[in-house]
Design a protein around this nucleic acid. Sequence first.
RNA 1: UUCCCGUACUAGGAAU
Length: 376
Amino acid sequence: VLAWNTTLSSHLRHGDLREATELFRQIPDTRKNVVTYNTMITGYAQAGQLHLAWQIFDAAPKHSIVSFNAILSGCAMHGDLQSAASLFHRMPAWNTVSSTAMIRVLSSRGRIEEARDVFDSMAEHDSISWGTMIHGYLQSGNLHVARDLFHRLPHKTVTSWTTIMSGHGDRGDMEAAAAIFAAMPEHSLVTCNALIAAYARAGQVDEAKRVFAAMPERSVASCNTIVAAMCGAGEVDEAETVIASMPVVDVISSTAIMSGYARAGHLDRAKSLFDSIPEKNRVSWTAILSATVELGNVEEAKCLFDQMPELDVVAVTALIAAYARAGHIDPALELFLAIPDPDDVSWLAIIHALVENGQIAAARGMLELMPDRSND
RNA sequence: UUCCCGUACUAGGAAU
């Protein structure tokens, strides 16, 4: 069983859900233990296949707290607060993992106070629950509380240092971020990537390049980060040289350089790049969609939209904005009303669309319908 | 030194 379980999780670590499923089927039920089931539950839950995750859960003869946590984390990872909360309250027991997953989903949905309640009610904390709570405060824009918690954190890890460094960078305080970087006892690959990304967001591409050049080792994410930074500064040619030097590229690299071309006005180059991406995902599709929208081509954008294999709120919002800019408020409204769970950006997009088209009363109505996530 | 669950970095949307 041990060998099977190890192979199973190795497939999942490589993102090979098919292979894992195949193996899981081949293992005789009598030879599976609770870990085998839990591993498979995790695989489905992280892939967003909650239904299949529950199927395995129900098929398992025994459950441990890990079985519950695996599903809970899947919900948390996908921002499904409703499912997460109801499972959290139905579980027979909680440990730090359960509470941390709950803190994460609550704070990612703007429920920072409730996240803090969970944190405060925990029997004991570890560096991960601290880090998650700190990250939650940063996401809600509360740098002061985040910093205060960080200072009270008994055992700071490279991860918590990186979290607080990025938090300062997000606020545009690159001096503080750089000071934190210098003060940390050690740097990981992710720490350096985070600093590069922070410099890029602050518009300091040269500093970003300096950090990148000084890195002893680089991951695909490191290269993708600097590629995006260069593209954001309009240096697509230089970004191409980074891409050319990479031993492997992924869908993120391709989408980044494609957007770079699109933003630089080379839509044709962007399109041919798009066609050459083997593993296009929602993000690649939306990127080419909004590049098309940028050029005011609503018909073509709609055509792309209809071809998308899967939609999300980001893609729909891009098309809403396209219609609105062209003065077509009706299809924009229709699209908006079909979104199952509109987020703040899509609400603001439709309200802005109504205002721009002179429908002030309707805009006012929408504004009132918009849920105030900070107060409940 | 011991198979399964939670935290930090990279590509897409509105406004500013």
